[in-house]
């Protein structure tokens, strides 16, 4: 899927883009390739979806978004496609997925991440989701994150 040069590029960038005026020239120099080649390769990786975007990952705790609730729902299987699309489109839902249940411990199959400035705000938003799901939902829970334990993103392993 990715060739040796792509791989070296990804390895060089997985820690982040250098904060210098010409970051791609610097990375290209480190890799011993032309800047134009690097930019072409990056454009191709974006087209293929290997790179989703080049952007900042914000720390929402530091931005005052101190309440981060993972809401989880046990939704009737035949309705999850339609209802999931509806929940995923809500402006305050940042990630929304269907995932397998792990019975008997875990009956929930719809995961929707909700961020807010307080637990009350997150609870109000959770109530809005519950109202949309209505009787198609047989149970729900909310898991607040209390600590970021790691946040590094993808790391390729060194390959010989």
């Amino acid at each position: 899927m990715i060739d040796a040069t792509d791989r070296r590029i990804i390895e060089a960038l997985q820690g982040g883009l250098p904060l210098v005026p010409a970051p791609y020239a610097q990375v290209a120099d480190d890799l011993g390739i032309e800047e134009a080649v690097l930019l072409d390769r990056l454009a191709a990786l974006k087209t293929r979806g290997v790179i989703r975007r080049i952007a900042a990952a914000p720390n929402h705790y530091r931005l005052g978004m101190t309440s981060n609730g993972m809401t989880v729902w046990d939704v009737q299987d035949d309705l999850i496609g339609e209802l999931g699309a509806h929940i995923g489109a809500l402006p305050f839902v940042t990630h929304c997925y269907e995932r397998p249940r792990a019975l008997p411990d875990w009956p929930y199959n719809l995961f929707a991440m909700v961020h807010g400035n307080s637990p009350d705000e997150v609870e109000r938003k959770r109530g809005q989701i519950a109202a949309i799901l209505g009787s198609a939902c047989r149970g729900s829970d909310i898991l607040y994150s209390t600590r970021i334990l790691k946040k590094t993103g993808l790391r390729l392993k060194a390959k010989g």
Binding site: M1, I2, I10, L13, Q14, G15, G16, L17, L19, V20, P21, L42, L45, R48, G49, V50, I51, R52, R53, I54, A55, A56, A57, P58, N59, R62, L63, K151, T152, G153, L154
Partner: peptide, 30 residues
């Protein structure tokens, strides 16, 4: 540009930004 880089470096140092760079999709890489 200078002001932008200063601000970006400060926000990274303050951990307002945890990471700046490409977001990779492991699935698209196989």
């Amino acid at each position: 540009e200078h002001d932008l880089l200063d601000r970006l470096a400060r926000m990274k140092a303050d951990r307002v930004i945890t990471r700046f760079g490409p977001f990779f999709d492991a699935a698209a890489m196989g």
